[in-house]
Design a protein around this nucleic acid. Structure first.
Lengths: 205, 205
DNA sequence: GTCTATAACGAGATAGAC
DNA sequence: GTCTATCTCGTTATAGAC
């Protein structure tokens, strides 16, 4: 249990402060335990960092696979994919692996490999969504689905990166919407509106 | 002179390692002087960081103003804007302010303000290019030029961020090309090809 | 599994000679 | 302007008791 809580706290710290900018002392303080206890669960910062990526990647995978499994129209799946990122940003965080991509040069080798694996995996998943969306005539783009997927993933990471200093989620929404429309010709604002509608209907209004 | 050299060395270190990941000792080593000497020129890390952003911003401004002054077609100006980023990436670096945007939460307040100012200024310049390009019928996009500019700048930052771990500049080129085409309907590959042609003509071949 | 204590190192920063 | 020497603090990490 402590391991999981440690990962929760450390994850947020890395997403907010970067790999070089977070410390065992910060985790320990927040959890109300000692630094030494942390070392029992994660021998070193490199081990903790690697565990963070692996858990993040697994969780991310399960989320996107739920999206695919729903079998919704491509535009809707894309909107959900964007919403994953948006929810992270709403919490004031950068994507874990986006942050670690910035820190890439100071990462221990095993973490570097894991970060690249994360992007590769998401790129493959997204390319699959784009490919089948194009097959069904729901999406339109030239060239390979892989390239389009790279463009979307990079664009979302950049949207998070440049929005965070402003603290205005609207910035991200606008960029993501234009990015998806421009890259594969899909409109995700419909899903966003439906979501907002669903929220207000089920809300205390 | 030492101040300028210090900024050169520190700039690269920040672009590669982040603000929390670079140290006075690294600068001093590389320059062959002592840490104490650095403190004579820049009292603290916060002062050095602020000086870095201000110089970067000034240099960036002069570069983009040269682009506008050339009065080339919008697509060409956009290609030049992309090439600024590409040349940074070729050197294995992240955009200075993109990197600092990742480090935003650990930056001293004056640096935070300067980072946002940098993005605001470039967004204004780019929005101007897009607006006049649309007026002349060279570009096509819906909504405000400001939003389109935000999308492009964010997209380029993200393209740099996600390309750097792979070390394959081609990734960036593909993303940038798609980003510009998708956002404002311009093709920058023409300028890229012309550049490559010019290079091979003037080269030793 | 958690603790206190501490080691070992590197960080930013300062004093004062030259 | 640059140096050596040093300070102080924070960092990762370990030892060993409980």
């Amino acid at each position: 249990m402590t391991s999981a809580r440690t990962l929760d706290v450390a994850e947020r710290l890395v997403q907010v402060r970067g790999f070089a900018g977070f410390t065992y002392a910060q985790i320990a303080d927040e959890m109300g335990i000692s630094k030494a206890s942390l070392h029992y669960h994660f021998a070193g910062k490199a081990d903790l960092g690697l565990a963070l990526i692996n858990r993040y990647r697994t969780r991310f995978r399960s989320t996107v696979e739920q999206i695919s499994a729903a079998g919704a129209p491509a535009a809707e799946s894309l909107a959900e994919f964007v919403l994953i990122h948006e929810s992270v940003l709403r919490d004031g965080r950068m994507c874990l692996c986006g942050m670690l991509a910035a820190d890439y040069d100071v990462l221990p080798e095993p973490m570097r490999v894991a970060v690249v694996d994360f992007f590769d995996e998401n790129e493959r998943w997204l390319a699959g969504v784009l490919e089948s969306g194009r097959d069904r005539g729901e999406l339109a783009f030239s060239g390979s689905a892989q390239e389009a997927a790279q463009t979307i993933i990079g664009g979302l990471e950049g949207a998070m990166l440049t929005t965070r200093p402003y603290g205005e989620i609207h910035r991200f929404e606008v960029m993501a919407s234009r990015l998806i429309r421009g890259t594969v010709g899909a409109d995700i604002d419909g899903t966003r509106a439906a979501r907002a509608g669903a929220r207000s209907e089920s809300g205390p209004g």
